[in-house]
Design a protein around this nucleic acid. Structure first.
Lengths: 257, 257
DNA sequence: CAGGATTTATAATCTAGATAATAAAAAGAA
DNA sequence: TTCTTTTTATTATCTAGATTATAAATCCTG
C-alpha cells in the first residue's frame, strides 16, 4: 500500500517507506502534520505535558476497508489525516444511504464522540491515514477545554446544517440540481476559489453519488454525461475539472446554494 | 466550577407570582410550568439569584404567525412552552422543505443558539406560548454550566441524528414507508407507549406532511386514505389514532425504525 | 347557521427517475 | 500484455409519484 494518490496527496515528505499498517510504524506525530494548526487539531496543545493524554496514535486503512461498523462500541475516536471516508447506513433490502463524505481534518463521526454507538458504518473511500484518540481522554479534553468545546459544538452545528441542506436537496430538488450542487460542494471542500478551470482529486464513483443523493447509478451516469457533453465539467482518472463554473452553478439552481 | 448533580438543582422555589413578562398577560413563570423539571429547562436553577439573568419572559404567538424569519438576527432564544412549530426553508420557485416540527420543551432552533443567523424560518403551527431568553445570557449560561452544556450538546447531536434519519427516509424509502414512519414518530413524541388504540393531538395538515417528506399533498392524501381504509389509523378533528400499531409498523418498513 | 376559506378526496394524465439488460471502457492484477 | 474485475454508458421499458382539475368535506367567523 503506497501513497497511491494524485499529486495533491504528497504533502509532508515523511519517509514512510514500508509500513506494516494497523497502527503505525511510519508514525510522524503531529509536528509534521499539515493539519496541525487547522480545525480541531489546532486545539490539541501539541507537546504540552498537560495535554499529553490526548496525543493520538496513527493507523492506516486500505481503500474499502471498514473503519467503524454500525452499533459497534469503539474505544477510539478518529480524525482523518489523509484520504477520504464514507459514512453510510443500510436498511431493509440492502438499500443504502450515504450520510456524508469525510475529508482530512474531520472526525470520522462526531456522533461517536458523544454517543456509545451509532447506527451507521464508516469505510475508507481511498487509502486513509487516521489519528486515533482514546475516547475517554478526548471526551475529557473537550469537557475541560472551553476552546475545544466551542470548536466541537461548532462542528456539530455545522454538520447539522449540512444535513439539513441535504434534506432540502433530497426533498425538493431535481436530480440535476442535486448532482451539480454536490460537485460544487466537493470542489469547495477541496479548496476551490470559484473560478472555471479548477481541477481536483475526485475518487468518488457514480454509485456513491447515487447512494448519497437518493438516485441510481444509471441516472447519475446520464446526468454526468450530459454535464460533460455540454462542457460543464471534465473527468479524467480520479480528477474532476470544473470547466464552466457559471453554467454548473446555473444547473445547481442558480441562487440559494 | 458550579455544582454538577442535576437533581440538586431544584432549589429554592421562589414565589414569583404574577410577572408581567413580554406580551403574555397570563404569564405564570417557571414554577407552575410542567416543563420545569424536564429537558433543558431542568437546568435553569429556577429562582437562584446567580442564574437570574436567564429567567425567561413569555410570549404568545397565534397559529401561522412567524416566530423567526430566515437570515434575521434575533436577540432572543425561544423554548416552546405550549403548542407546535414548523421549521422550514423555501427555495427557488417557492418549493418548500420543512426541516422539523417543534414540540413543548424544545428550542425553536438550536442553530440560532450558536449562530448569528439561520437560513430557515420558523412559524407557529398551532397557537404557541414561548419562553424567551436573552441570547447573550443563555449562551453564557451554557458556556459556564457544564451540565447545561452537556445537555445542549446532547440536543444538538440528537437533532443531527434525527436529520440523518430523515435523509435516509428521503433518499431511500417509499412514500408509504415515510408517512407511516412519520406518524409513528409523532405518536412517540406525544407519549405513545406502542400499543394499538392510542390517540393524540395531531394538528398537522397533509400539505405539511408533503413538505416534510418530499411529496405532494395529493399523494399524501392517497396514502393516508389507504391507511384509513385498511384500518391502520383513524382521524378526527385534530386527532390521530393508531388503530393497528403492528400493521402501521409493517407499513413503516418493519424492522429498523 | 350562513357563506367564504381552507383542507381533503379522487380521477385522469404525465414524467422524472427507476429497472433491466447489455455493451464498452477503465482499472488492476498476473 | 492478457485476463479479470470494476466502473461507466446506453437503450428500452416501466412505475412511483407529480401535475392538473374538480368536487366534496371541514373549518372558521361573523
Amino acid at each position: 500500500m503506497s501513497p497511491s494518490a494524485p499529486e495533491l496527496r504528497r504533502t509532508v515528505p515523511s519517509a514512510e517507506s514500508a509500513k506494516p499498517g494497523g497502527n503505525g510504524s511510519g508514525w510522524t506525530g503531529c509536528n509534521s502534520c499539515p493539519l496541525r494548526d487547522k480545525g480541531f487539531c489546532s486545539l490539541l496543545r501539541h507537546g504540552r505535558a498537560a495535554a499529553s493524554e490526548v496525543e493520538p496514535r496513527e493507523s492506516s486503512v486500505r481503500a474499502r476497508q471498514h473503519i467503524y461498523r454500525a452499533k459497534e462500541q469503539g474505544r477510539y475516536i478518529a480524525i482523518i489525516r489523509e484520504g477520504m471516508t464514507l459514512r453510510y447506513l443500510t436498511i431493509t433490502d440492502g438499500r443504502r444511504q450515504i450520510l456524508s463524505i469525510g475529508m482530512p481534518g474531520e472526525f470520522i463521526s462526531v456522533t461517536c464522540v458523544v454517543r456509545d454507538t451509532a447506527p451507521f458504518s464508516v469505510q475508507a473511500l481511498t487509502p486513509v491515514r487516521l489519528c486515533l484518540f482514546e475516547k475517554e481522554a478526548l471526551q475529557q479534553f473537550i469537557r475541560n477545554d472551553p476552546d475545544a468545546l466551542h470548536c466541537f459544538l461548532d462542528i456539530c452545528v455545522s454538520e447539522k446544517e449540512e444535513s439539513e441542506s441535504r434534506i432540502v436537496d433530497l426533498g425538493r430538488r431535481t436530480s440535476e440540481e442535486r448532482i451539480a450542487r454536490f460537485l460544487l460542494q466537493m470542489a469547495s471542500r477541496s479548496g476551490w476559489n470559484g473560478e472555471s478551470g479548477y481541477s481536483f482529486h475526485f475518487p468518488i464513483r457514480q454509485q456513491h453519488i447515487a447512494d448519497l443523493l437518493g438516485l441510481t447509478q444509471v441516472h447519475v451516469s446520464r446526468v454526468i454525461s450530459k454535464f460533460r457533453r455540454t462542457g460543464l465539467i471534465t473527468i479524467g482518472s480520479g480528477t474532476l475539472k470544473i470547466a464552466d463554473a457559471y453554467a454548473l452553478r446555473q444547473a445547481a439552481g442558480g441562487r440559494d446554494i
